[in-house]
Each structure stands twice: as C-alpha cells, then as structure tokens.
Design a protein around this nucleic acid. Structure first.
Lengths: 107, 107
DNA sequence: ACTTACGGTAAGTAATGACTAACGCTAAAG
DNA sequence: CTTTAGCGTTAGTCATTACTTACCGTAAGT
C-alpha cells in the first residue's frame, strides 16, 4: 500500500500548494520557491516527499531541475477512494431512510 | 477548502484503518477499539477528526454511539483529485514524447 | 580557471500530533 | 436509587515533521 505515502504527502498545505502549481505546468525548484512563503530548501524537501510518493517526477535541465506532475500517485489515491465510494453512498441512503423511520415513531 | 481536513484526516494510518472498517458497516466506538492496537480514547479522538473532516457521521444508540461513513468528505477529495487528473495524464504523455526526442539526439 | 546560478543535504529548532491514563457524564440494568 | 456499560474530554508525554541556516556539489557564463 504505497498510497500511504501519497496521502501523507498531500496532507501538508504547502505540499498541496506546490502540487497545484505544478499542475499548471512544469517548473524548476527556485522558480517555485520564488512565489511561495517558504525558503528554497523547504521546497526542495517537499518535492522529495512528493517524488517518493509518486506524485511528481523530475528531470535535469542544465544546472536546473524541472519537476512535473506524475499521474501514478494520483491514480493510487483515486483507486483507494473509489473502493469506498459505492458503499458510502449506499450507507448514506440507508441512514437517511433510517432517520425517516425514527421520525415516524417519536412525534 | 475543507478538503484540507479530509486529507489531513486520511494521512494517519490508524484513521485510514478505522475508515476502512466503517466501510464494512456502521460500528460503535468500543467495538472498533476492540480489534485495533490502540486504546478506546484514541479511537474516539480519531473519530472526532474524521467527523470534522466530513468523512463519518455519528448517531446515538442508547448509551452507545454508532459511526458510519459519510460520502461528503470522500466526494471533496475526489473532486480535488479529478481537477488534476486530465492535466496530469496530458503532462505525462508530453514527457514521454520529450524523452523519446532526447533519445534521438544522444546515442 | 574563476565566478555565478541552481539545488540537494545536514544539523538544529519549534511546532504539531498521536497516544495513554484519569476523570466525568449520560443511558440502560438491577 | 445504585450500579454498570459506553463515550467524550483533559492533561501530559514522546515522536514526528516542517522550517531555516549553513554547507557542498555541479553546470553554465565570463
């Protein structure tokens, strides 16, 4: 279950911010750090976490290093969520009906 | 953006475990704690977090309290992920082609 | 060769969070 | 009315982590 890393990665607000910016196109580390409220090393560390979670990939570009979104980690989370989606809706419907029955007995 | 709470909630392994068990049917707190490696208060605190994230709902059942999955929080995360899904796949395809072109120049 | 630009890593710190033990409250049972 | 069962809350502790500063390696420009 590597989806653990993906969830932990996206749990941090700064990391979600980085991820959202990368969704608008590949960017270099310093470029990302420029319009973020944290230092460049912080961004670098966040990117490392995102990379190990399969959420981004990186490629060298001269002295720079360009990061972009990786659909793999995204897919893992989606698969895990979809596993519960149907049963969740079903349970929700059952609960609504159960509450309706409760209303019939009380008032 | 309440999806922040949902992501933070599902980032914890124990909380994901609780969530998975609830997906197999509504359960009471002590019942959940019985086959989990943590104490009952811990489970209670986790359920509070899940509840504030819109991932579970609770209803009183005599002296007990029954929890079950709430599709709301699940839907928020899914919506957030779907926002990136298409662009992520597109970016991935572009990257594959870019690497192919790079192979043509080097060897 | 020297300098500048760009990033990853190490070390240290402050804050967040997951957990247990102890207490208090409400609802059924006796 | 007293007792028991089931939960939520509080306080305190230990581990995790997000962050900064400082340092080192690598690539391009002069």
């Amino acid at each position: 279950m590597t989806n653990a890393k993906a969830f932990a990665a996206l749990a941090d607000p700064t990391r979600r911010e980085v991820f959202e910016r990368l969704s608008r196109g590949p960017r270099a580390v310093g470029d990302l750090a420029n319009d973020l409220p944290v230092s460049r090393p912080a961004v670098s560390q966040h990117l490392k976490v995102l990379k190990e979670a399969g959420l981004v990939t990186d490629r060298p570009d001269g002295a720079r290093r360009v990061y972009q979104i990786d659909p793999q980690g995204l897919g893992q989370i989606r698969a895990w969520l979809d596993q519960f989606w149907d049963v969740a809706l079903e349970a929700f419907k059952a609960e609504v009906e159960r509450q309706a029955d409760e209303e019939d007995d009380k008032p």
